[in-house]
């Protein structure tokens, strides 16, 4: 039932718990399930990362490091995975990517790293849930 799982992550605690659930779902399927990790870099993130790490190359490297943690988790459980990094505003980009591919399920954390932003602009997860066609699992 859940052969192709899309897992949206951002390095937050909620995303870590979402990864655990995605692993659980993939295990239900047994062999043959695969997880695609997706991470979206938006303008605010670009600005703060470049300020924090000095240049774009280092920022990219730091993101790869963050994603490797999830890749390792999946690898250790024997689940096939691939990683996609996209650029744009998080909600719209995830929705477009999820609806373009054939996924059986999208798993993500209910909140991201930036709670203040969620308060002002409305949550990414809310928009994603509304517009993604596949079943969406929001992990608290």
């Amino acid at each position: 039932m859940f052969k192709r799982i899309l897992l949206a992550v951002d390095g937050s605690e909620h995303a870590d718990r979402a990864a655990e659930k995605a692993i659980g779902l993939a295990k239900l399927q047994g062999a043959g399930a695969s997880v695609e990790l997706v991470y979206v870099v938006d303008a605010k993130k670009s600005k703060s990362d470049v300020l924090k790490y000095g240049d774009s190359d280092t920022a990219t490297y730091k993101r790869k490091e963050m994603l490797q943690v999830y890749e390792a988790k999946l690898f250790n459980k024997g689940i096939k995975s691939e990683t996609t990094v996209l650029f744009g505003s998080p909600a719209e980009t995830i929705i477009e990517h999820a609806n373009d591919g054939k996924y059986d399920c999208l798993v993500m954390g209910s909140r991201g790293r930036n709670e203040f932003q969620t308060f002002v602009l409305g949550g990414v997860s809310h928009k994603v849930m509304k517009h993604v066609k596949a079943p969406v699992m929001l992990v608290k």
Binding site: V41, A43, S46, V50, L51, S56
Partner: peptide
Amino acid sequence: LTASIVDDMTD
């Protein structure tokens, strides 16, 4: 600085 941010945003 701005150039680096645009580098990053557009990959």
